[in-house]
């Protein structure tokens, strides 16, 4: 049991684990951040010492929205891993912001760097936990059920055993008569 799997907190009387809830929160956070990056890249850029990089910020916004939608789907694990990768890219971009701009911008970039660092940790733990959940719950796959025919008298005897059933008129679709054969082969009209 590692730190990731302890976050799963699986309870049989609840279908959602703590990890699932955190993943959803991250999904909504992604959507919000992505929207901000697309709608106001200039403001964000100025605040973080990334002036002139509005196009890049918009692209990051698109990435965040994609990850957010995916994280809110019924298979969030790949989306959270994608967020971890995105976080690393964000950290690199913000680190660049530390080198330029004025004191205020460098301070903002430092705060943003610390915030993204914290989010990266949450993303990483959540992604690891979701993956652990998937692995630990998998159980035995591909079990052989070839002894479960469902026919107490055997599969061979079952074939056609219900031919006494009369198909209701509204479900009949096949002509009762066999199509005519010419020279032993069916021929098109």
């Amino acid at each position: 049991m590692n730190i990731a799997s302890t976050l799963v907190t699986s309870r049989p009387d609840r279908s959602l684990t703590l990890t699932d809830r955190v993943a959803r929160g991250l999904g909504w956070f992604s959507l919000g951040l992505g929207l901000a990056e697309i709608v106001a890249p200039g403001k964000l850029g100025r605040a973080l010492g990334l002036e002139g990089k509005e196009t890049l910020l918009r692209a990051y916004g698109g990435r965040e929205i994609g990850a957010g939608i995916w994280a809110l789907s019924d298979t969030p694990a790949p989306a959270i891993w994608a967020r971890v990768a995105g976080d690393i890219v964000d950290l690199g971009t913000l680190a660049a912001g530390l080198r330029g701009g004025d004191d205020s911008q460098r301070r903002n970039a430092f705060i943003a760097l610390a915030a993204v660092g914290g989010i990266t940790l949450v993303d990483l733990l959540t992604a690891m936990s979701l993956s652990a959940e998937t692995t630990e719950n998998k159980g035995e796959t591909g079990r052989d059920y070839s002894d479960r025919s469902g026919f107490p008298g055997g599969a061979d005897k079952a074939r056609g055993a219900a031919r006494d059933f009369k198909t209701p008129a509204e479900y009949r679709s096949t002509p009762v008569e066999e199509p005519k054969r010419v020279s032993g082969e069916l021929e098109p009209a």
């Binding site: 049989p12 998998k138 159980g139 796959t141």
Partner: peptide, 17 residues
Amino acid sequence: EEGPGMYRTFEQKNDSC
């Protein structure tokens, strides 16, 4: 009482469910 957990088992086709 174990039903919610079994929803996850069934959903994810775990344990050859």
